[in-house]
Computed example of a mutant assay.
Amino acid sequence: MLVVGVLALAALAGWLYLALGHGGFWKTGPGLPPGADPSGWPEVVAVVPARDEAAVLPETLPTLLAQEYPGTFRVIVVDDGSGDGTADVATRLGGGTDRLRVVGALERPPGWAGKVWAMSEGVQDAGEPEFLLFTDADIAYAPGTVAGLVRAALADERDLVSQMAMLNTDTRWERLIVPAFVYFFAQLYPFRRVTRDGARTAAAAGGCILVRRETLAYAGGVNAIKGALIDDVALGRLIKRAGGSCRLDLSRDVTSRRPYPGLADLWTMVTRSAYDQLRYSPALLTGTIATLVLLYAVPPAAAVAGLAGLVTGTGSAALAAAAGLLAWTIMAATYAPMLRHYRLSPLRAPALPLVALMYAAMTIDSARRHRAGRGGAWKGRTAPH
């Protein structure tokens, strides 16, 4: 029981740091600053990589084309070798508007990730706008969102402004796993540290990234992240390392319409990039799993074991129970704001350890798939590593 108590104290120390000293990662506000309308609105071109997205485009592309942006705004859909008529659907949804251009990506060169190559093709076709908006085909936009992104970029002189899209939580599995996915992302890349100039933390959320074209070109262009599987984080790092200023926020105005109806769909979403996040390192994999177990599994286990020990009079039971319960409480308290952001009951928060153990299993499976030659599998492609 003494060993359990010591592990619980270590977990408690970890949660005290995370809650108080880790960039306020658990906070979900305040969102984009309102900003004032500029005297002249810069040109914006949205680049939408699309591979076999015919089913979801009718729910998303019209919301982008309907943006009431005061300046010049165009949309380029890059058909990335689709076999389901994606280009035809996009053209039909455009209805002849000169705001939309549908282009076919050339054959992907060796060493390029599929999405990044499609992004590069869109940039080549965009001309010389002041801002590029990289957005996924499954992302829908509330009215006025593009103008709000530009206001925020101009008001704070940001080179990159990104919004973490609201993901679907319609099914039981989505409600269990999706808020935790965003919570863990924020824990890895605290949004306030991303936004703080001078801080080393850099990231972006791939569903919605507004970036200054000249800054991107100065940083090396999309070519500089050509092999990136987690392209949004790579793009954020690229811009920040080049001296650019970034901003990352949660959003309810940017929403994903991609469904993940079953556990297998969500499992694939996570395993696709989890091992890439660890740079394909067995040592980092081992350390990550050990940290997840310490932070998420030890507190409830110590609390239960300690309370049982109090009944039987086991030595050090009080230490294990107190440290475990306090760490578990802090953990749940930091998770509750994300649940509220997704309009879910904070009473779900104490179950986070179970979800964390599922993510640990997904991470291990991601490494297994990589070793089997199926790493980063997405729509018939694997990662270029």
Rank of each mutant, 00 (worst) to 15 (best):
A234D: 07
W112L: 03
A333T: 11
L307Y: 08
L325W: 09
V116C: 00
T169S: 15
M119Y: 11
A305D: 00
G71R: 01
A55W: 02
A228F: 05
E130A: 09
T91N: 08
F185V: 10
V4I: 11
L210W: 00
W41D: 05
G287W: 06
P350Q: 13
R252S: 15
D80T: 14
L357T: 01
K240E: 05
V194H: 08
I209P: 01
V178G: 09
S256D: 04
R247D: 02
L307C: 13
V182G: 14
A308K: 07
L339K: 04
A320M: 12
V298C: 11
V182P: 06
M338H: 02
L295P: 14
P34Y: 00
D231F: 10
L65E: 06
A336I: 03
I330M: 07
T201R: 10
A50T: 12
D138T: 01
I76Y: 07
S251P: 05
P110W: 13
R193W: 14
V47Y: 09
A274W: 07
T63I: 11
A54I: 00
N223S: 08
A203G: 08
A205H: 09
S273R: 07
G40I: 07
V6M: 04
R158P: 12
A301E: 09
G104P: 09
R348P: 06
I239N: 08
G31V: 02
P259M: 14
V89W: 12
T91W: 05
L357S: 02
V4C: 07
G373P: 06
A372S: 13
G324D: 07
R175I: 12
R200K: 15
F25D: 09
V78N: 09
P190S: 11
A318M: 02
L106G: 15
L64I: 04
E214N: 02
A303Q: 02
P179R: 01
A301V: 14
P350N: 11
T28C: 15
G313S: 02
G221S: 03
T314L: 13
A113N: 10
P190Q: 13
L7T: 05
A205T: 03
R340F: 01
C208R: 00
I225Q: 05
G220W: 00
S82T: 12
M269V: 12
M331F: 08
D276G: 10
T63R: 10
Y260G: 04
V4E: 14
Y218V: 14
A87H: 03
D84G: 04
Y296P: 04
W117Q: 11
V47Q: 13
G198V: 01
G104L: 13
Y260H: 07
Y218T: 06
L210F: 00
W378R: 01
R212C: 08
G5W: 01
G198S: 15
A8S: 10
V355A: 03
T63D: 07
V150T: 13
K115R: 05
A290F: 03
A46H: 00
G207P: 03
P42V: 04
G122S: 06
M1H: 14
Q124Y: 09
